[in-house]
Simulated assay, not measured.
Amino acid sequence: MEIALIGIGKIAADQHVPAIAASDDWQLAATVSRAGSVEGVDAYTDFDALLAERPEIRVISLCLPPVPRFDYATRALKAGRHVMLEKPPGATLSECHALEALARAKGVSLYATWHSREADKVAAAKEWLSGKTLKSFRVTWKEDVRRWHPGQDWIFEPGGLGVFDPGINALSIVTRILPDAIHLSGATLHVPENRQAPIAADLNFYHPGGADVSAVFDFRQEGEQTWAIEAVTEDGTMQLAHGGAQMFVDGVAHGATETGLHGEYPRLYANMAALVRAGGIDMDLSPMRHVADAFLLGRRETVAPFEF
């Protein structure tokens, strides 16, 4: 199937383009970007021109920042195209609900992707936790914003999510592997005095079984990056490391260990191919709901200004 990639920035170049190139399901037929392009692929700067001139491209993958994504997704869906959304699927929950309603009205597929759910050991962690009594659950997600989002000021603007841009990856894993639904009970958001979105956050959650569930997100990590989850149960301790690429049970590695985003984006594109063939929609918004609750309930603390 032919697909167009919209927004040729770092994540598109690092993950989307290689995943499409390696897939038997897809052919990258065109791109839309103000500055970026992919060698050998038709490049557009105007999205409406692409939609008008290339009706044979039935699938659109959006890699834009969250705020402009709704406008592009709406135009694509109204044109009868299937749409794949980078995370988060929109700037607000209402936008996402509107997109799903439009996709259903148009009879096309819509996919809110959560790449961290496709990390190598997430499925195994879900299986291991099933049926166990949880005592505590701790998420530690700390990375260097300068390394992963160099000069991207939009991430600290309204709708950019700040530290929840990576933090929502952790929440996508949490909402996939925990047997019981949780919800936010308290939060502290650390907001630089010259920015609109938090650079760090401390979260606490209500668990129906009384387990102690918490998360720490920080965009100021230097040196080694930390993407870890620890679940302590009555039957042992399970740890996920490297964003779900590695799993340990009572300190013993579970299966082969991977690093980085190994296999995540290829699996997303395989999922999208299956949705298009089946005429399906996958718009699970549970990770985004926790972020919205944090902005609603969180106590804000002003911290030192931040510059790239």
Rank of each mutant, 00 (worst) to 15 (best):
D180L: 07
R176L: 12
N204I: 06
P208Y: 07
R147C: 03
L28N: 06
T45P: 01
D153P: 06
A112T: 02
A119G: 07
H149W: 15
L203H: 01
A125T: 01
W128Y: 13
H242V: 08
L28Q: 06
A22C: 02
K121D: 03
E127R: 07
D202I: 07
A105G: 15
V17Y: 12
A211Q: 12
P88S: 04
A241Y: 13
R277Y: 04
E100Y: 05
G36F: 14
A278C: 04
S185K: 13
C96S: 14
I177D: 11
A294T: 04
R267E: 15
V252H: 08
K132D: 04
P158N: 01
A112Y: 09
G160Q: 00
V216P: 00
I60D: 11
R220C: 09
K10T: 11
I155S: 00
A125Q: 00
D144Y: 03
Q246R: 15
R54M: 13
I155D: 01
L93N: 08
F306L: 14
Y206C: 08
G210M: 13
A201G: 09
E258F: 15
G7N: 10
D48L: 08
P55H: 02
W128V: 01
I3H: 10
L240K: 03
I57E: 00
E307G: 10
S23A: 09
W128G: 13
S37C: 12
M238Q: 10
S185D: 13
I20C: 13
Q221C: 08
E307L: 09
G255E: 12
L99W: 06
I8P: 07
G260T: 06
M238S: 09
H97S: 12
I229R: 02
G186Q: 12
P208Q: 14
F205T: 12
